[in-house]
């Protein structure tokens, strides 16, 4: 009994530590005083400031545009990459491809950022929206591959034979059997790529020029100048958004599951009625 108590206390402590800074930020976003030390009264002022900050809104839009575009491209390229890797017969080629795939997964952000910077300057690609988008696509591809690949490997080759046997062409086998089967993997791949892109600071920091900024970079430069409760308000909004993402992801998963259940119940009632 005592042990259970200890473990609960320990976990509660860990959770408190994990969430204190976040709630601290959110709490002070409603502070009338201009700092994070003394709560002098409740106000929405910092949120008004945030939502009327045109520069910030443009940055938010740019950040999301980069996230959506990069995760979309990364998902498409990565999915075909995973299919290609799984389709290799030789085990050696497979593991060589996987090793190359994982280089960017294990490389520190600084290395990715610095080496991409060298790459872009070598290729003569100007720094800005394009270079940031390319970088985000590049570092999101391997995570998509890693999330799709297990689903592809799980796919029983007999299913492909069965589709062919029933008259499916290669394209029909691909679109009607392979893609639906690996969709959960593609979905989580896209989702992870999206969060990777939203979260990234270091790589963007290296490859963004003077004209283009994402949220992370903006927060960094503002934080270096000290406390501004507008950032608190921003973090509250971002936390809410993350929460929505999590809940959304959870329910989309649940929905696709329960949709089938519902269909079945519907069918059952049909059968019993007739």
């Amino acid at each position: 009994m005592k042990k259970i108590k200890f473990s609960s206390v320990y976990l509660v402590l860990v959770f408190i530590i994990l969430y204190i800074p976040i709630f601290y930020l959110i709490f002070y976003s409603f502070n009338q005083g201009g700092n994070m030390n003394h709560f002098t009264g409740f106000t929405w002022a910092h949120y008004q400031e945030l939502f009327s900050d045109k520069r910030m809104l443009v940055i938010v839009l740019d950040t999301f545009l980069i996230a959506i575009l990069s995760s979309l491209f990364a998902t498409i390229i990565g999915t075909f990459g995973a299919l290609g890797i799984a389709g290799r017969k030789s085990q050696r080629t497979k593991s060589a491809l996987l090793t190359l795939n994982n280089v960017l997964m294990v490389s520190p952000d600084v290395i990715i950022g610095a080496s991409f910077l060298i790459l872009f300057s070598a290729l003569g690609i100007g720094l800005g929206f394009g270079s940031v988008l390319l970088s985000h696509i590049a570092f999101s591809i391997p995570i998509v591959v890693l999330l799709v690949l297990p689903k592809v490997n799980e796919l029983d080759p007999a299913l492909l034979n069965a589709a062919q046997d029933l008259g499916a062409t290669n394209w029909q086998t691909f679109s009607r059997v392979i893609v639906p089967y690996i969709t959960p993997g593609i979905f989580s791949g896209f989702f992870m790529a999206f969060t990777y892109s939203l979260d990234d600071f270091a790589v963007t920091f290296f490859v963004t020029g003077n004209g283009f900024t994402t949220l992370s970079v903006e927060i960094y430069s503002r934080a270096r100048q000290g406390i501004s409760l507008e950032i608190n308000a921003l973090s509250a909004v971002m936390f809410l958004f993350s929460l929505l993402l999590v809940v959304g992801y959870y329910f989309v998963n649940r929905y696709s599951h329960s949709r089938r259940q519902k269909q079945r119940r519907h069918a059952k009632s049909e059968v019993t009625l007739s």
């Binding site: 029983d156 007999a158 299913l159 034979n161 069965a162 589709a163 062919q164 046997d165 029933l166 008259g167 499916a168 062409t169 009607r176 059997v177 639906p180 089967y181 969709t183 089938r260 269909q263 079945r264």
Partner: peptide, 29 residues
């Protein structure tokens, strides 16, 4: 190719499409 042959197969472990229900499986061809 297999998809043009007038034979059909019942597979060892059935190879039913897990993302389709019974009707959709049978209606596949």
């Amino acid at each position: 190719p297999a998809n043009q042959r007038k034979v059909n197969t019942v597979f060892q472990n059935y190879a039913l499409f897990p993302h389709l229900d019974v009707f959709e499986n049978v209606a596949f061809g």
